[in-house]
C-alpha cells in the first residue's frame, strides 16, 4: 500500500488509525477535508486530528468505514455496536456526516 492512498486519523488521546482514503471518505466531512482545494492543512499531510473523538469511538468509526465498503460490495452482515458506546458514537457520526 502506498502512503498517498491512506490517511491517518488521530484521536483525542493521540492514538493513530491508518486507513485507506477510500474508506475514510465514507465520511462526508473527511471527504471534504481531503478534497477541497487548498484550505485544509489535512490535505497536505494526510493526517486529520479529532480532538473531540475518543480512541474507542474513532476505532469503531474506522471499522464502520470498512463495514460500509464490504456491505456496498454485497456482503450482508450486521454492524455490532456496544450499547455503552451508542451516544458518543452518534455524536461523532453526526459530526462526520457518516
Amino acid at each position: 500500500m502506498r502512503k498517498e492512498d491512506t490517511v491517518k486519523l488521530i484521536s483525542a488521546e493521540g492514538f493513530e488509525f491508518v486507513v485507506d482514503k477510500e474508506a475514510a471518505m465514507v465520511s462526508q466531512t473527511i471527504h471534504n477535508m481531503l478534497t477541497s482545494p487548498g484550505s485544509f492543512a489535512e490535505r497536505q499531510h494526510g493526517e486529520v486530528t479529532f480532538p473531540e473523538i475518543s480512541t474507542t469511538i474513532l476505532e469503531k468509526i474506522c471499522q464502520y468505514f470498512y463495514w460500509h465498503l464490504q456491505f456496498a460490495s454485497g456482503k450482508e452482515t450486521e454492524f455490532p455496536i456496544e450499547p455503552e458506546l451508542t451516544l458518543e458514537l452518534m455524536m461523532a457520526a453526526n459530526y462526520l456526516h457518516t
Binding site: 493513530e16 488509525f17 491508518v18 486507513v19 485507506d20 474508506a23 476505532e59 474506522c62 470498512y66
Partner: peptide
Amino acid sequence: SKTTYFIR
C-alpha cells in the same frame, strides 16, 4: 504501540 493500520 498507539498506531492501528487497517489493511484490506
